[in-house]
Amino acid sequence: MTRLKSRLTYANVTASIALFVALGGSSYAALSLPRNSVGTNQIRTGAVGSSEIRNHSVALRDMSSGAQRALRGAIGPAGPAGPTGPPAARDFEVVSGAGALIRGTAVSGGRAGSPGTYTVAFAAPTTACAVTASLGSTDATVVPAGRVTTSVQGGMIGVQTYDAAGAPADLPFNLIVAC
């Protein structure tokens, strides 16, 4: 004990007290402050630099809109124009089972005599076009199972609809002309 008393000086006591206070304060901060409690109000301007930020930890969405605009490069030259031409589907028509033209670009047509037989005419010639039809409702009703065939007959398109058994039947359909 005598040996310890001989080393007790004002400087040693003050240094020891300062050490305990410093360690105690940082321990208190580490244990009592809630997670993520340090925000922009607690950080001085310029206190955080690139050496304190982990690489790849800042995303574009974390930056201000001004910083995002500064990162954008110059707009490059426009690319070459794409090919031009007429649209693939030139004409269409929706036809009811009774032969009424509901909506589309047909100029005339309707039921042509026997059950399930229809003709549809468009303003432009269709002889060099592809024609396709599908059974389809003209409103919210369900169309029964069946099939539909098409043919180009001079300036008109012939359509024949059949029920599931293969017998001609008056069924609504959608017609598309692609040139």
Rank of each mutant, 00 (worst) to 15 (best):
T127K: 06
V95S: 01
T126Y: 05
G66M: 01
R61V: 15
A133K: 02
G116D: 03
F122Y: 06
V120P: 03
A78C: 03
V107H: 00
A112R: 09
A121K: 12
D91M: 06
A128K: 11
G85R: 05
G76I: 09
M63R: 14
G109A: 09
H56P: 02
G85K: 05
A59C: 05
R54N: 06
G136S: 13
I102E: 11
A130P: 08
A59R: 14
A74E: 12
T119F: 12
A100P: 00
P125R: 01
A89E: 12
P125C: 10
A112T: 10
V131C: 02
T127N: 11
H56T: 14
G113R: 03
D91I: 06
Q68G: 01
G109D: 06
V58Q: 00
P86N: 12
G97N: 08
A67Y: 08
G66P: 03
E93I: 02
G79S: 00
A133P: 07
P87K: 14
G116R: 04
A128R: 13
D139W: 05
L135C: 09
V107R: 00
S134A: 14
P115Q: 05
A128W: 03
G110A: 01
A98W: 04
G113H: 01
G76W: 08
T138S: 08
R111F: 04
V94F: 08
P87D: 13
E93G: 03
S96H: 06
V58D: 03
A67E: 15
P87V: 14
R69N: 14
A98E: 14
P125A: 14
A123R: 11
G73E: 11
P87L: 11
S57V: 09
R111A: 15
V95A: 05
P83T: 11
S65L: 15
A121Q: 13
G73K: 09
R61Q: 15
A88P: 00
R72Y: 07
